[in-house]
Design a protein around this nucleic acid. Sequence first.
DNA 1: TATTGTTATACTCTATAACTATA
DNA 2: TATAGTTATAGAGTATAACAATA
Lengths: 166, 166
Amino acid sequence: MDVSNRSDRDRRSQRSSPARPAAAPAERLEFAELNRHVGYFLRRLQVAVFNNFIRTLAPLDVRPAQYSILVLIAANPGQSQAAIGQALNIERARLARMLHELQRRDWIERRAALDDRRSHSLFLTDLGAKTLARIRTLAARHEAQMVELIGAKRRMLLLELLREFG
Amino acid sequence: MDVSNRSDRDRRSQRSSPARPAAAPAERLEFAELNRHVGYFLRRLQVAVFNNFIRTLAPLDVRPAQYSILVLIAANPGQSQAAIGQALNIERARLARMLHELQRRDWIERRAALDDRRSHSLFLTDLGAKTLARIRTLAARHEAQMVELIGAKRRMLLLELLREFG
DNA sequence: TATTGTTATACTCTATAACTATA
DNA sequence: TATAGTTATAGAGTATAACAATA
């Protein structure tokens, strides 16, 4: 989502016809209570950030949820699907399908857990580890663009504020 | 999304077996670079906030995007679908279907625009205006719960930070 | 030719239920 | 009985393309 995508038409209309019917003030819409909802702005920035992530990671075709799964498996090898899903708040049914796709790409493998044969232990494959290194490079580039967009100082402040709820 | 939904099993496991194989530390997962991504935390809080909104507005069955459309039409009567969609970053095809649903509920009406017969001027119906009053009461309750969750001071800070990008 | 709105299609994400195999 | 994982289905949200009416 382009958060500041006001069109040429919008900008032109600011210069034209200073007086016009009250029912259709084309200059700029009134947002009313939306201005008081933290969720509204949270959503807009989140969509903008995710879109930047998706664009930046497009060469490797990795989406935010896939990235978070790969990072968690790399940092916590051998964990079960239940543990990974719970940590990321991904529903087990959805996680199963996402892991199937990551396995299809030969980035992860599932081994039968030794102690509980119902559960699968998750690991990166060699290819997965190599690919994650490249993914991390692009993810770092994305985050650098977030610094540009938000400003280094405001980004840190935002990160500290948000981290208390994650 | 329950942002702090660690299970009883998790908590129990913190007390048990201080030394265990490095491959499966069940205590708490390592989040690694995820801790450095503002988008990750932005997303988690946004989902939590939207879920609270949806739950709180459930008696009237109004979702965040529907709410934003109603508020914008109320504050800017007679605007076109294009104007509303652009302001909220809702794609025109999707907006058409959402307006169809709001019209089905008799909350909005579309009148042919006087100057441009391609476009529709959007208005709340009387029922729509009455319902929006009730919706606003619930939306205010939701926002009050956000103050509880986030803290009044931090919420204002967050709002100021986020508003610069919306 | 371009724009407004519509319909249709497809893909992602979320939510739920039903099923299996284990425990 | 309960849990881990799978499969299937349905709804929201998003992205496109094709189309009719109008500019």
